[in-house]
Design a protein around this nucleic acid. Structure first.
Length: 279
DNA sequence: CACCAGGTGTCAG
DNA sequence: CTGACACATGGT
């Protein structure tokens, strides 16, 4: 099964390398294997189109996963017209980014691992986790491993997570998994709440702070009134927005107040541009 | 050797 | 409430 769309607002490389997803590999020049939950697809651009190849049964899943029903031209236009020069450049640079509709539980665990860590190492740890606790599968001859289930994650102890490189975050992953098991932050308990209410619940769990909570609402629940503030965004806030606040909670508030329901998209343009284009 | 990476928990003031 | 510090690990 093949899904095609115009690539004007869908750049595979920018969408995959902007830091929202950790499970992809380049299988040949510009061609990627993308893994989500227990499914995989092949993604690439050809001429003026972006092409997604997947199993017939997964067509709807990946159509939604790549957020194909949303009008990104409108988002790009909004972002470019905020009278902030740095943001205008960042948007032009990252206009092909789409915010994926990834699996909630996968995002929860992935972003707990991400804290005070760098993206290449996060990818390695998540791959180890999936090889150890996920199921081995294949798509078009490419072998991949599904993301571990809650049960699989709860079946191991802190020592195991330290052994695959989680360091001091080993206890956090179990704390978060148990909070899901206890129905405190499972998907069904959160899906109908407002973004603020969801963040409050997430923050009550040991191992989830302000930044990770925003990543989970944005990447796991597509709540675009989220704005994760990490070291890069903190730098942008000081250098390019000349902000004076110091707490990440206040900085998040500043941006969400400014960009409302577009905050999450704006955040991605800024982060991607600063990390890749600016030295 | 120090410093950094998609930070958070804890504790002193 | 805010600021400092510890916390694993691997890369410059």
């Amino acid at each position: 099964m093949v899904i095609t769309c115009l690539n004007e607002n869908f750049s595979p490389i920018d969408t995959l390398t902007c830091g929202q997803i950790f499970r992809f590999t380049e299988i040949s020049d510009g061609k990627f294997l993308v893994v989500s939950k227990n499914k995989a697809c092949v993604l690439f651009s050809f001429n003026n189109e972006t092409i997604i190849e997947c199993e017939d049964a997964d067509k709807d899943y990946f159509h939604n996963y790549f957020d194909l029903d949303r009008d990104y031209a409108k988002i790009v236009e909004f972002s470019k017209n905020q009278r902030v020069e740095f943001l205008e450049k960042a948007t032009e640079y990252g206009k092909g980014i789409r915010i994926l509709n990834q699996d909630y539980f996968e995002m929860l665990i992935s972003f707990v691992i991400s804290q005070n860590n760098n993206i290449p190492r996060i990818k390695k740890i998540i791959e180890k986790l999936s090889v150890a606790l996920g199921e081995k599968r294949q798509f078009k001859g490419y072998v991949y491993h599904s993301f571990p289930s809650l049960t699989a994650i709860l079946s191991k102890d802190e020592g195991f997570y330290k052994s695959i490189g989680l360091g001091y975050r080993a206890s956090y992953i179990l704390s978060v998994a148990n909070a899901v098991k206890d129905k405190i932050i499972d998907y069904n308990s959160l899906k109908d709440l407002t973004t603020k209410e969801i963040k409050k619940k997430l923050l009550s769990v040991k191992g989830i702070g302000e930044k990770v909570a925003n990543c989970i609402t944005l990447f796991g629940l597509h709540k675009s009134d989220s704005f994760p503030v990490d070291t890069w965004i903190e730098k942008i806030y000081k250098e390019d927005f000349l902000g004076k606040e110091t707490s990440r909670e206040k900085i998040t508030e500043y941006f969400i107040d400014k960009f409302k329901d577009y905050s999450g998209y704006v955040q991605q343009y800024l982060f991607h541009y600063k990390r890749n284009f600016i030295k």
